[in-house]
Design a protein around this nucleic acid. Structure first.
Lengths: 170, 170
DNA sequence: TTGGAGTGTCAACAAGGCTGACATAAACTG
DNA sequence: CAGTTTATGTCAGCCTTGTTGACACTCCAA
C-alpha cells in the first residue's frame, strides 16, 4: 500500500490502519464531534437556565418511564447527591413526576409530566436534527460503522445499559 | 430533504434508517461511548489532581507545538480566563513552556516540556489503547464510517480545525 | 426486632465553565 | 508621533455539576 491516505478500501492494511496518527485523529474527531453533538440542546437549555445534567435526566426518564432513581444513577454514572439536585429542580418545576413504588414503596418511579415531555421533545428534536443531517451525509453504511465503533468503545456496563435501552425502545 | 445516498440502498432500509428510534440510539451511543472515551485518561489525571481541561490543553499543544494562546482558545472553544487558569498551572508545574513570539512579541508560543511530553504520552497511550481495541473489534470499514459520521456531526469551524490538525499531522 | 437497602437531604468543597473589568505590551495606522 | 487595535494576563465573582461525608427515614426481610 503506497497510498498515504487510508480509506475503507485499504482494508487489508491493518498495520498502517492502526498508526498512532490514525488513532489520534480518531480521538480528535470524538472531541470535536461531541461538541457539535451537545451544542444545539445546550443552547435551548441555556435559555431556561438548565444544564446538560438536566437534559440527561430528562432524556433517560423519557426513554425508560417509571425507572427508579437507583437505575437512573447507574445509567448516568453520577452520585445520588448530584442527581438529586437536578431531579429536585425538575420535580419542583413540574417536568418530572416522582411516584412512590407500589411493590417496593422505598423506590421512586420517575415519569415525565406533560411539560417534561414537551421539553424532552424540543431538546431531542434539536439533537436529532443534527444527527439526522450527519447520518444522511455519511450514508447508511457509515452509520452502521459509526455505531459499531461506538459500541466497542463503551465500558462493558455501559454497553449493557445501552443494549437494554435499545431493546426496550423496540 | 431529498437524499440520493439513502435511497441508493433501498427504500425500506432508508425508512428504518432515519427513524427517531435510530437517531435516539445514535445519541445514546454517543453518550455512553464518550464516557468510555474519557474514562482512562480521567483516571490518570485524577492521580495528579488535573482534570480534563488540562488533558485537552496538553493534547493540542503536543499536537501543534508553538501554537499561540489565541489559536488554542479557538480550538478548545473556551474563554481565555478559563484556559489561562489551566495554562498557568501547567506552566508552573513545568509541563508547558510559554515563549514570547519572535515575529510578534505579543504572542506566546506554547510547547510541551520534556515532562509535559511524558504526561501527554501517558494520557494518549491510555486513550489510544481503548480506541485501538475498539477499531480492531469494529474493523476498518466501520472505522471509516465512524470517522465520516463524526466529521459530519461537527460544527463547520470545528471541522476546519479538525482538518487543519489532520493535515499538520502528516 | 434488627440490619440493610433505597432514598432524600444537609454541608462543604473543587473543577471548570462563564461574564465583566482592567492592565500591559506590542503592533498597526493615520 | 498619537491613537487604536490586538494578544495576553489577571482579578473578582457567579454558576453548574461533580465529589465526600454524615445522618435520617422508610420499608423489607431475616
Amino acid at each position: 500500500m503506497t497510498d498515504s491516505r487510508q480509506t475503507a478500501t485499504s482494508v487489508g492494511d491493518s498495520l498502517l490502519f492502526l498508526t498512532d496518527e490514525q488513532l489520534r485523529q480518531g480521538s480528535e474527531a470524538m472531541f470535536f464531534a461531541y461538541r457539535g453533538f451537545t451544542a444545539d440542546p445546550d443552547r435551548i437549555l441555556a435559555e431556561m437556565s438548565y444544564g446538560r445534567a438536566h437534559h440527561r435526566a430528562i432524556h433517560f426518564i423519557g426513554r425508560a418511564p417509571g425507572t427508579t432513581v437507583n437505575n437512573l444513577l447507574t445509567i448516568l454514572g453520577v452520585t445520588k447527591q448530584s442527581l438529586n439536585r437536578v431531579l429536585r429542580t425538575l420535580v419542583e418545576d413540574g417536568l418530572v413526576d416522582s411516584r412512590v413504588g407500589r411493590a417496593d414503596r422505598r423506590e421512586r418511579h420517575l415519569h415525565l409530566t406533560e411539560r417534561g415531555r414537551a421539553l424532552e421533545q424540543r431538546l431531542s428534536d434539536a439533537q436529532r436534527a443534527r444527527l439526522r443531517a450527519a447520518f444522511r451525509e455519511a450514508g447508511p453504511e457509515a452509520v452502521a460503522g459509526f455505531r459499531r465503533v461506538l459500541e466497542a468503545m463503551m465500558d462493558p456496563e455501559m454497553q449493557a445499559s445501552y443494549t437494554k435501552l435499545r431493546e426496550a425502545g423496540q
